[in-house]
Design a protein around this nucleic acid. Structure first.
Lengths: 206, 206
DNA sequence: GTCTATATCTCGATAGAC
DNA sequence: GTCTATCGAGATATAGAC
């Protein structure tokens, strides 16, 4: 790969991520992606065959990176609550640095999540156990050991997802009620982290 | 209004809600809405001038109904935790009966929430205090009185929104890990309610 | 690898018959 | 009030020069 190819391709990636996360796959316009990438439409089709394959490439790349980060953050051996606190910090920081990823995933789900589901199915059949699977197992283990209250692992996962991801979804509406609610504010992200950890810690411990 | 007008108009409303909630305003196709409503495209433009006004009519109607339901569910005088438990039940039941509303609101937010914001601003200047405003005041009151832990009202609202709404967003992905996670299952909705109430109750009380 | 120009199709919206 | 037919704009995608 030449330097030009790398920078153009990553410019396309970034622009596509932003546009897809705002409008979804069908609502996105190739022209808008080209404009945000600072190139012309023909280049999009040179690097990626068409809109569908561009969408799939962006989604797979961005979600794949997320999953492995979550995997890395899930250190074994530590008490569950402590481990959960660390994961929430990592998770929130990743979303704060690039809120488009959470939004893209939500768009995927609103559309039935065909791409996400096929990605997960493919990973499931791979050699080593998958991030979310390992996390669910860890939650069940902690619940069985009486380390935390007897929660359903999938419900707790959904709860963590809701509390964290919603931060980067709901602000356009909720900032009407509290203008200080800006996701580019480090103080807000910090306050959000503390709230989540506090509520969850007291919420699941016995 | 004749009977034909009423049934056609509500058929359009329902179909538009479904399609907009899946694809967002820009991703939705007038043809798809017409098909789901069992009419042809020309009728859409007969009842609503264009796509934008159809979207705004659907959004305003559906969110307005939601806000007043929330308002009704917020009975004063009762202990906060008890009142919150009731609201979560009402809120979850409404979403379970019509999951498209939560999804439409999320779509709105992904798009910057211009319609939602102008709706709220308009209501704010109306005569009587607004649902969300009253709820925020009620949370602050409970926190100040030491009835619950000292939480930021907006963060608690975001948390409740996340835990409830995420149920109707994330299932396409999460059902890969747990196939019993179906939003049309009364048992699942019930389990979800119990989980939310349990985590939140322990999470905010002292 | 990057651009302009254009082919082809789809979409939103309207005209006009019934 | 409902339909068919169609217009014109805007969309994806490609051809071909540089």
């Amino acid at each position: 790969m030449t330097a030009a190819e790398i920078s153009t391709e990553s410019a396309i990636f970034d622009a596509a991520l932003r546009v897809f996360s705002r409008k979804g796959k069908d609502g996105a316009r190739m022209q808008e992606i080209a404009d945000e990438a600072g190139i012309n439409k023909a280049m999009l089709h040179y690097y990626f065959r068409n809109k569908d394959s561009l969408y799939e490439a962006v989604f797979a790349h961005v979600i794949g990176r997320f999953f492995s980060e979550i995997d890395r953050a899930m250190l074994p051996g530590r008490p569950f609550v402590e481990s959960m606190e660390g994961m929430i910090h990592v998770y929130m920081d990743m979303h704060a640095a690039q809120p488009e990823v959470a939004r893209l995933w939500v768009q995927e789900n609103l559309n039935g999540a065909p791409v996400a589901r096929s990605l997960i199915e493919r990973h499931r059949n791979a050699d080593h156990p998958f991030g979310p699977h390992r996390l669910l197992a860890r939650i069940r283990e902690a619940a069985d050991a009486g380390e935390i209250r007897a929660v359903d692992p999938v419900h707790l996962m959904m709860t963590v997802l809701g509390m964290t991801v919603m931060t980067f979804i709901a602000t356009p509406t909720l900032s009407v009620f509290d203008p200080s609610l800006r996701i580019d504010s480090a103080a807000m992200i910090d306050a959000r982290k503390r709230h989540i950890v506090e509520v969850l810690t007291h919420g699941i411990t016995i």
